[in-house]
Design a protein around this nucleic acid. Structure first.
Lengths: 125, 125, 125, 125
DNA sequence: GTGGTCTAGACCACC
DNA sequence: GTGGTCTAGACCACG
């Protein structure tokens, strides 16, 4: 369900956060569904439970998860999907901005768009 | 020429690296041009020369800069611009991939493209 | 496990790098095995932890080691052995090339080969 | 006649030393022939004359060059060729030794020898 | 505990 | 003057 890449330089708790976010956006984890306990997930990923705890805490601060004392952590109602899509859009925008600053003109832009469209949607062949 | 943002959480030496890379891509620093000495830049940015040294060392292992003992550090011949544009393209591709995984269909894709094009190139109005 | 030669003019961190590389090639250190911490190795070799850090960093940029914050440094999967043998082969080739440029003909070449073979493999006598 | 590679990490004076040694071994510079003055060579290579001076000094210490005060530096009688060939042989031997330590058996050794012989002497095709 | 960054200050080789 | 290495000591983020 979740795997950690120790080669990745980003901290383990952040990897867990984004993995869980992905599972929520993809609908694998549904609103009010219970997340695994910090202990069990700690064992599953052979990580320190404190690390899982920190990940859950971050998710809670973001409003993506709510915790009920003594019972567990649950997926909250939250339109994570549109937020994530917004985030991605903005990242793409930023990337394009620096590309333009580095000399990407509107012609190159069109070429990129073509190539992207092909890569993303022309797997039908 | 270069300024450091101490509120930025990324390390100082990385900020210096990317600032210098930008200056090279933009053509402000040209191949075989001498970079400021570690000591002088250290004074200018009021940081420790060792920090500058680390930045230059990173640039050297990337092949963007070469250093000559007793003389200084110099911009090397290296098509940094196309490499950077490639990197940006790949980042955009990755972003789009996860967007698609999150449900971005070809219609939404077209909408994004429109919006992006407008933002980037229709400042003329 | 590792010793430093202070009479050697090559920097300490490089000595550490090559010592560790040797241990990996010889199979003493295996993939995903944990290297000593920068602090402990620093004490063991009575050098500054920063020096060990630099050695580990070099190994990481070479792809021989990966580091996990808060956990430690680990030997990565990487066919260091064949790379090293390739390097050695190329060095020998370069040496032979200059020898040929200096007048080593195919006869002398054969003589060298004989002598080398004897030195390397006829210790059995 | 001589060119310097500033990308090379070895100091400039060493590069000059080995370049001159090569010219002597190849017979371009003959015994008792006068070397360029430190000033003129300094201009030619656009280097500090002190650097040339240091190179000549090293060559003198090695016995490859002798200097006559107020007149110049001259190539001495010295069997540099056989010494260089000896050096190269020993370097090759050292390389082979580590290769053997890394697992090169006599079979691989034979393969290498084949490949080397081909590369070095079968350009006749 | 671990690695990563940074500072201050020193020394060396090189030009 | 230049870069390169090293030390001692500090602080931070992470597990």
């Amino acid at each position: 369900m979740i795997s950690i890449d120790y080669t990745d330089r980003s901290p383990i708790y952040e990897q867990i956060v984004s993995k869980i976010e992905n599972l929520i956006v993809l609908g694998v984890l549904k609103p009010d569904e219970k997340l695994p306990s910090v202990r069990s997930l700690g064992i599953e990923l052979s990580t320190n439970p404190n690390t899982i705890q920190k990940a859950y805490q971050v998710l809670e601060t973001k409003g993506i998860v709510y915790s009920v004392k003594g019972i567990g952590n649950f997926v909250s109602n939250f339109d994570l999907k549109s937020q994530k899509l917004d985030d991605i859009y903005n990242q793409i925008l930023e990337n394009y901005k620096t590309a333009v600053a580095f000399g990407l003109n509107s012609e190159n832009f069109a070429t990129w768009q073509e190539k992207l469209k092909e890569k993303l949607y022309d797997n039908s062949k």
